[in-house]
Design a protein around this nucleic acid. Structure first.
Lengths: 337, 337
DNA sequence: TTGTAAGCGTTATCAT
DNA sequence: ATGATAACGCTTACAA
């Protein structure tokens, strides 16, 4: 790596002090017209670039956002895109760290980023995360923190997320409206907020419609097509098999679909299927799968905006909560009428 | 943001000099056993964290890799995952910047990262990128640089990529073997290396099999399902319509598939279809789409390894080139025999 | 074994 | 209008 051109180089070459050069470069008012020109010309010629590290050390800010996410699947990639776009615009660079759904990696990532490189954090937790000491540490250090998508209610920080309860509700209500009576749920990992909220929406909707819930109809599994396939097979093998399955994600729905097809059942006639996320694939499959849109890009943009607001106004925003309303896209897999 | 605990705080509290504290913390040999213990104990108690910024400024290295990619679609997300994993293991943090296929944003990202925060670059260029001054600038500054996936041949730097020519070849040969005679090509943007290499594989294979190429059978379009749909419609509307379409990506293949279905044609009987990337969806569609696997995760890991090698051994590696062999997964969309 | 001082590249404060 | 100096937090000769 080449030695960087510094302010000092310019100062020496021009027989000026570093402070004058610094001032000239930043168009400070109290600097002679000629010196300014000379400095700028030489800076240009030598292709001088300020050393951000030195600036960051001095200013105690890096213009960098630490973004910690559990994976880079469709939904999160979309959210990252939104965050990125807003951040770039505002002059921030985003450090994306994937925890890969691992609590351990999430902690390592948090620690690394916390070790003073980033101005603040935007986090969506891993599915393993049940203890939040690492997150609290961020707050102890008074670094700005925004939670999105998979938020943690017990942490005091701005939260941007989908109304997952409502998502669960509209999906379930739709199935009921289509005449399905024995609706199973393929849920995600047990302790994951988004999964449980969707589940609550499902449960309450059943109750409101006076449909008894069958515990055996609720299966928790990892966000993984294979597991969903196995879980769905189990459901279909029951004597009193469900006549519809609501899946907490499209990946799960795809796994379920494979099991349904293998069982020789037809959607929507024999069984109804609804997914979540509204991934582009859902439109393309046969049958196309009904799914709940979660507006990932918008959530991403909103998240970054809240972050910027938080970082610029030192006011307390820990109560701030932006909740996006989901929308159900009804497709063949569940449309009977 | 809270004031950080510094070495100075510990020094004052213990009535030592900062240098002694620094030494004690780093287990330097020339420090008294007792002082070491005292320092470490207090550091622990105060939860002292070294200021990486100061260290970086001093050492002129940030343990950070600048990763510039055109998008976060399935293939690149997979590659990023591979890069991330290896980098994390080696103590590096990755700054992922999406150019969003925009030349302008690629330049902004490069400039920002170059302004001294990162130790080196891993880049896959945008589809708009035809001028490489920003990349050359990285080299002028002697920062380590590795290109992957969409590489630039005229730039002297290690390159890790798929054998795209071979990918084009096996896809085309497969179609020929299945008895297709009029094979069209849905290619990507005109100036994109991966697209042209795949195209060359296609062209040469046709030639080798003594099949005349029809210029009208080759359509360039953006990596976008909509465009592919339109392009495929055009192809199918020709009097002498193609009896097979090789698409340079799965997204394009999906667009083509929609057009094919709409035209009432059956795959593989009436028309053959082969995609590229082997995205998980290809298996799930009806018919399942044959596709060329490109081993994104492995390419990602290899890329990060080469980067680490480059950064640690100051040897010249600009000739290094790792080329992965693609593999065709044959599915219903093109399997006649 | 410990302390002093210079330096990494920059800016801000105070003189001149 | 310009310069000297201290400071950001840390490491590393060099002294003691």
């Amino acid at each position: 790596m080449e030695r960087q051109i510094t302010i000092k180089d310019i100062a020496i070459a021009l027989r000026l002090s570093t402070s004058t050069v610094s001032r000239a470069l930043r168009d400070a008012p109290d600097v002679g017209e000629e010196t300014r020109k000379a400095v700028k010309a030489l800076a240009e010629e030598l292709d001088y670039q300020p050393n951000m590290l030195a600036l960051s050390l001095l200013k105690k800010q890096t213009n960098t956002i630490g973004l910690i996410i559990p994976n880079l699947d469709y939904v999160l990639a979309t959210m990252v895109k939104g965050i990125d776009e807003v951040a770039l615009e505002a002059g921030y660079t985003v450090m994306v760290c994937q925890s890969d759904e691992s609590f351990g990696r999430e902690i390592v990532n948090t620690k690394r980023l916390l070790d003073s490189l980033v101005d603040g954090f935007i986090i969506s937790v891993s599915s393993e995360t049940m203890i939040f000491e690492h997150i609290k540490k961020i707050q102890v250090k008074k670094k700005p923190l925004v939670l999105f998508d998979r938020v943690i209610n017990s942490i005091n920080a701005p939260k941007i997320r989908l109304d997952n309860f409502e998502g669960g509700r509209i999906a379930t209500q739709h199935l009921i409206d289509q005449g399905y009576k024995k609706i199973a749920l393929l849920a995600g990992p047990e302790n994951l907020s988004i999964s449980n909220e969707r589940k609550d929406g499902y449960l309450q909707t059943l109750k409101q419609n006076k449909i008894k819930t069958d515990k055996n109809f609720i299966i928790h599994c990892d966000f993984n097509q294979e597991y969903a396939y196995i879980a769905a097979k189990e459901l279909l093998a029951m004597k009193q098999r469900p006549d519809a399955i609501f899946c907490i994600s499209d990946r799960l729905a795809i796994g379920a679909m494979l099991a349904i097809k293998e069982a020789g059942l037809k959607m929507p006639k024999d069984i109804g299927l609804v997914g979540f996320n509204n991934e582009p694939i859902t439109k393309l499959l046969t049958p196309a799968i009904s799914s709940v849109e979660m507006y990932g890009f918008e959530i991403g943009k909103a998240t970054a905006k809240v972050f910027l607001e938080l970082i610029h106004s030192e006011t307390d925003m820990s109560d701030k909560e932006i909740i996006f309303k989901p929308k159900l896209f009804i497709r063949e897999s569940s449309k009977r009428s």
